[in-house]
Design a protein around this nucleic acid. Structure first.
Length: 748
DNA sequence: ACCTCCCGCCATGCT
DNA sequence: AGCATGGCGGGAGGT
């Protein structure tokens, strides 16, 4: 196809091809590492030269390097040919290439570890596909091909794909084949994950953990382990043990094999990890806490070290991919005890897909309808088969099915007009980069590719925009200030909040994918349709304001601080975020976001663990709690007497762009809010006034299923933020006295 | 010394 | 049995 603007729609793989091959030097990879962020020179790629570290790079050079590094083709040619596979240890190849090199030299020529990092690999992978692929085109991904082109073992591709799958950015089509969905479903997915996270009371869990830690520090009493009831509670007892993979309609697993491991898979971990960010007010999650929570869900009991380490390893893998997607960025939280690795959410602000859950959400009726339909679709799929016991479906879903189908038809039939998205939205634009060299390099490369491949300036524009956007980012700042102040207030009685998982959660309808029939993905909206979409949940965010203050404070001990970093703001990076689209594009972007309205919620699956007795107990507690929790959201001021720890936080931002991204994406207004509130705002792109045209149905695909209101829904969207805040705050409490420092990490 | 996390063995489960 | 997936953790690069 001709692609219009950017080549967004061409087939995914082709993109890669488009790149202009500069020359690659073996060193290219190396270069990547060091590449500087500048993009300026996107245009002319010069020849790449290898750069020695330390050498100053010119943008052009960087680009070249990146390209070569990234470009599969190039790599294939050269590296592949011999160098590349060190692993294989093909001496011959090496020899050929590096005959002249001595052992040391040879080694140096080899790609460094960083160059082979999953994060960089992910960037390369992502560079191959548009953020918003044209559904009408063939968006299939052949794992073998990708692995070959990127010169990596297939195992690595699985790591990436699994995480992308958790975000519904890809879906398994068949053996060795995946379908690329890009960011079309992302907001929806995130909204759903947020809802599920809320239902699972992750915020509370986080708080509990922090509390425990805090207590331990002070030797309060026993050493708590993950085992605490609270944690456990979430986990299993209620009957809903761990949550299962949250699926979107149309994006479900089609392979039984896949399903078999669903519960343990990286995918689930990835979703849970994302949930933690979405429910946390400061949106900063340390690996330690994430690991504890994840372990807790699985098996509280054995929290042995090895298990913990393994979990951490996995989280790094996931984090690398999420970082490549610009959804999170690495930061460090510094406490008295030391520095702890953590990640900060830099993705879009998400309001939970209320799937009906929370009345809170202010959707326009029409929107609701739309969502429903989408849900229904989901439902359809979900219901259909798959019997995984683990999943639960929400009753309300059923209703929707009909409408969904009709929608689906429409959608399918609808002509797809190329969406304009600009890919720029994605990472490419992001001029601001993350600190990490690798990322930068990747980004640069992506940009280059785009340019080369695409015609356009759009990209440039976007870049520019992104830059502008950043200002928005400031959100954080306020927060920081507040934090400190607030922290004290945050204190609550330890026991106050019931961390207990809500029973509801169990109730939560899970969407089951069904796989059977044709790939639903086909359904994806078309641009127009997209527009139609309802405003996402995001609306509610506004509501949140209150929380904002809370939020601010609430931040967990750690994070809190950090974010503010102004830096972040700037970076914002619009870049990556899809949201940040050029004006024209924005709409589309928005649309995309919107669609998500419906959310499904996953249910947890019952895991094996837990003792029944405790479960019961928890369940009961939960019930009570839930109610409470709903309420609880509101902070209970003063209850707890803990000393706040967050006294001083120092942020060390480096790059920081965190939130900006979000801001970028969303309207200014939104941004404003954010700033005001601090982060709490959950704005969804959807809101944006996008005039859409309707074909409302289209959305369908995207929309997840949201659970219709679950029974009680614990927190409304707005509440959510709130909760987070509370939680956080709580966390803070626990942590008190430490000084937290957050620093974004750069690259090293 | 600690943080990261690459790498690939090998289990799992479908075909 | 063969192959696709992907859990898992040893061990090494980076800082």
């Amino acid at each position: 196809m001709e692609n219009e603007k950017e080549n967004l729609f061409f087939e995914p793989h082709k993109r890669g091809l488009m790149k202009t091959p500069l020359k690659e030097s073996t060193a290219a990879n190396t270069v990547l590492t060091e590449i500087q962020p500048d993009f300026g020179p996107l245009t002319t790629p010069t020849k790449p030269k290898e750069i020695s570290q330390g050498e100053p790079w010119t943008p052009t050079a960087n680009l070249k390097m990146l390209i070569s590094a990234v470009s599969p083709e190039i790599r294939n040619r050269d590296q592949k040919r011999g160098l590349f596979d060190n692993r294989n240890g093909l001496p011959e190849a090496k020899d050929c290439l590096h005959e002249h090199l001595s052992g040391d030299e040879y080694e140096k020529s080899q790609p460094s570890r960083k160059e082979k990092s999953l994060g960089l690999l992910c960037h390369k992978f992502l560079a191959r596909y548009p953020n918003y692929p044209n559904p009408a085109l063939n968006n299939d991904i052949c794992l073998d091909e990708v692995a070959e082109e990127l010169n990596v073992e297939r195992r690595r591709i699985y790591d990436i794909v699994n995480v992308l799958e958790s975000l519904h950015m890809v879906s398994r089509l068949a053996k060795n084949r995946y379908t690329w969905h890009g960011r079309h479903n992302l907001n929806q997915t995130l909204g759903t994950l947020k809802s599920v996270g809320e239902e699972n009371k992750y915020a509370e869990q986080i708080m509990m953990i922090k509390k425990k830690e805090y207590e331990q520090e002070f030797d309060f009493s026993k050493s708590y382990t993950i085992e605490d009831p609270i944690i456990k509670s979430n986990t299993g007892q209620n009957g809903h043990p761990d949550m299962c993979f949250v699926e979107l309609p149309g994006v479900e697993f089609r392979a039984a094999s896949v399903n078999s491991r669903k519960d343990k898979s990286l995918r689930v971990m990835s979703q849970k990890f994302v949930m933690l960010f979405l429910v946390s007010t400061p949106q900063i999650v340390s690996l330690e806490i994430a690991a504890k929570i994840l372990i807790g869900e699985d098996h509280v009991e054995d929290l042995d070290k090895s298990k913990f380490k393994t979990k951490i390893r996995r989280l790094y893998d996931i984090a690398n991919v999420l970082s490549s997607l610009d959804l999170i960025k690495k930061v460090h939280v510094t406490e008295e005890r030391g520095r702890k690795p953590a990640f900060k959410w830099t993705g879009p602000e998400i309001s939970p897909n209320s799937s009906g859950l929370s009345p809170v959400l202010p959707f326009a009726p029409s929107d609701l309808e739309v969502r429903r339909s989408s849900k229904e679709n989901c439902a359809k799929n979900l219901f259909s088969t798959r019997g995984k016991p683990n999943f639960t479906r929400h009753p309300s879903l059923i209703k929707l099915v009909k409408s969904i189908e009709s929608d689906r038809r429409k959608i399918n039939s609808a002509p797809s007009s190329p969406v304009k998205t600009n890919k720029a939205e994605g990472s490419q634009n992001s001029a601001p980069f993350p600190s990490k060299m690798a990322q930068l390099a990747a980004i640069c490369k992506m940009q280059l590719e785009e340019q080369s491949s695409e015609p356009r300036k759009k990209v440039k524009v976007q870049l520019a925009r992104s830059v502008h956007c950043k200002p928005v980012a400031p959100l954080d700042t306020p927060a920081n200030a507040e934090l400190e102040m607030t922290a004290p207030s945050l204190i609550q009685p330890l026991g106050v909040l019931p961390l207990i998982p809500s029973p509801l959660s169990s109730a939560v309808p899970v969407i089951l994918p069904q796989a059977p029939s044709g790939p639903s993905y086909a359904i994806y909206l078309q641009p127009t349709q997209a527009q139609t979409m309802t405003p996402p949940q995001g609306l509610s965010p506004t509501v949140c304001p209150t929380p904002s203050s809370n939020a601010t404070r609430s931040k967990d001990s750690t994070d809190t601080t950090t974010e503010n970093t102004a830096n972040d703001a700037p970076k914002s990076s619009a870049s990556a975020r899809p949201g940040s689209l050029p004006p024209g594009l924005e709409r589309q972007g928005i649309k995309n976001r919107d669609r998500e309205a419906a959310g499904e919620r996953g249910s947890k699956r019952a895991s094996m663990l837990e003792d029944s007795g405790s479960r019961k107990r928890f369940k009961e507690d939960l019930k009570g709690v839930e109610n409470v929790s709903t309420v609880s959201t509101s902070p209970a001021p003063g209850t707890i007497p803990v000393s706040p720890r967050i006294e001083a936080v120092s942020v060390i931002p480096e790059n920081a762009g965190t939130q900006q991204g979000r801001a970028t994406k969303y309207d200014a207004s939104v941004l404003v809010q954010n700033q005001t509130n601090g982060q709490s705002v959950a704005v969804t792109g959807a809101q944006q006034p996008v005039p859409v045209t309707p074909k409302g149905s289209q959305l369908v695909a995207e929309s997840f299923f949201r659970t219709p209101g679950g029974p009680t829904k614990p927190t409304g969207s707005s509440c959510v933020d709130f909760d987070g805040a509370n939680n956080t705050s709580v966390g803070t409490l626990f942590v008190p006295q430490r000084k937290l420092e957050v620093s974004t990490e750069d690259v090293h």
